[in-house]
Every structure is written in C-alpha cells, then in structure tokens.
Design a protein around this nucleic acid. Sequence first.
DNA 1: GCTTGACCCTCCCACCATGGGAAGCCCTAT
DNA 2: ATAGGGCTTCCCATGGTGGGAGGGTCAAGC
Lengths: 151, 151
Amino acid sequence: MNIGDAAKASGVNQKMIRYYESIGLIGYVARSANGYRTYTESDVHTLAFIRRARRLGFPIERIQALMALWRDKRRSSAEVKAIARGHIDELQAKIEELAEMRRTLEHLVASCAGDDRPDCPILDGLSAQTEAADPRPAGPASRRGGAPGGA
Amino acid sequence: MNIGDAAKASGVNQKMIRYYESIGLIGYVARSANGYRTYTESDVHTLAFIRRARRLGFPIERIQALMALWRDKRRSSAEVKAIARGHIDELQAKIEELAEMRRTLEHLVASCAGDDRPDCPILDGLSAQTEAADPRPAGPASRRGGAPGGA
DNA sequence: GCTTGACCCTCCCACCATGGGAAGCCCTAT
DNA sequence: ATAGGGCTTCCCATGGTGGGAGGGTCAAGC
C-alpha cells in the first residue's frame, strides 16, 4: 500500500500521515526501492486509531500516551480511563468557557433593539463594560499619576 | 503614554498591541522623536474595546467589522446585532461539537472498568469503532479498486 | 561624566494541526 | 515518447499568543 491507499483506507489524508511521521507520532514507515512509503494493514489500523482519537479532540500528545497503552497488552484499563477523564475535563472546561461567552453575548444581544437607530448596547458593552468579573476596583479613570507599584 | 502604560491601562499586552498594529487592526500610532509609540486615551479606549471583544471570542476579522460600526455614528444597531448573532451561532456550533465529543467519550469511559485489568472499551472503541455516525457503508475492506470519484 | 536599570525598538522563532503549492522523480498506459 | 497520476521533499500560511535576542533611549543616582 502506498500512502494514497493508506490515506483512503484510514481516513487520514496524506499530508497528515507524513506529518504524524515527522513528529514521531508513528514510527518511520517502510520504504520501497523507489523511496515510496509502504503501509501495512497494521499501519492503517494505527492511523485509523489516531483519526478517531483526533475526532474526539485528543491532542497529539495525549494520543501518543493512548497509543502506548494500546500497544501495551499489560496496561491497566485504569490508566486509559484516567487519560480519557482528563480529556473530558478539558473538553468540559472549554465548553464552559464558550458557554460563558455565549451567555454574555446573548445578554447584550437581547438588550439591543436591532433596528435602524444607532443606539447599541452591544457596542456600549464592549466599549465601557463594568468589568464586574474582574476583582480589581478600577476607579473612574484619571488616576494616572501615582502608580501603586503594579505588575 | 508609551506602550507599557497603554498596555497596563487597556489590559492588552505590549506584544499584542504591536501585533494589532502590524495587522492593521488599529491604525499606525503616533511616534515620539525617539521612535517610541505614543498612545492617547482614545487609543487605550480602542484597545480595551478589542480586548473585551477578544474575551468574548470574536475573531480579529469580526472585531474589525465591529470597530468600523463602533466608529460610525450613523450605523444601525441591526448591523451590530447581526454580527453578534453570527458569532453566537459560531460559539454554539463549537460548543455542540465539543459536547458531542464529550458525550461519546463519556459513554466509552462509563463502560470501562478502570481497574488493573487490561480490557478497555475505550481503546477498543478507538481502534475498531463502528463509525455509526459516518454515512458511508464502509464495507469489510478489500474494496480498494473502484474509487467512486471522491476527492 | 558614568553606570544602572527600566523601558522601548525590530526581527526571528515557536506553538497546534492543518493545508496549499512548487519543483522534481517514478511508474504505467497509450 | 509523452501524458497523467502518484510520490517525494521543501517552503509558506493560518490565528493569536508569547519568548527571546540584540540593540537604542531615557532618567535617576553617584
């Protein structure tokens, strides 16, 4: 199997296959006399594994760990589970971050008339927000003289 | 105000301020005789605007559009609202994508004992998944001859 | 005057994962 | 022989963010 066939069979495109090889995610693959990479069914299996892990959002680094366990027939499932849980937590954190953005933005959108007039609480919010989330007092400006010793 | 003060006052760090200038998000800023960038209160205001928009996840390109409307006193709030809605939709799409990953992963994790034994449905799922979500039949391999024409 | 330290400048590099494209070799079919 | 498709490597770009090198500038203190 040349790289094109491996790409089709695994669902990972050629560029990515070469990239994964270059960063050491998969070992150097065998080459035929003309220098073409040649792939076995097993290689394709590995690539498909990577693809599915990527689709679940695992970063390359974590996939490396997963693959090590995958190959290690004496692993404990607890180790795998721990990695997966860690990733779930990261997904969750990102989801919450995005959801928080969405919430804030929805509030702004809800208070905006959305008509022909220029008055727009969205822009007002962006340009002079109260920064309620910030733990700093942030006085009414004009305090630009005595730097208390900041960062 | 030099760049350091502007950074402190706006919450955007120096690197980013220079970057925003270099990509044209903010216009070229005035320079003093020694070549230092000098910022006005208005510049700081703009930077703070950018920072808040970034915090809401707006990409630079959209921020550019927002700033144009911000400066245009004759804009209609509908335009602003449309941009914000578009961004909300994108946030939502990302959230759903991540949530779908999380759901799948949670199913796998739930079915994994997480003990000392090597048996692990998580790895099994990654290595031989049924690909139920894919609309392709994906026969039992060995169909490697007749490419239907796809990219 | 000289040193010290804080500040500023530009330029290069890295991240993560993905992809585009060029220049050139290899193989097969006509 | 020529066309075409596949393969190779190498460079570049993305979006934002940041690190760091190497050097100029300014103000304060001695």
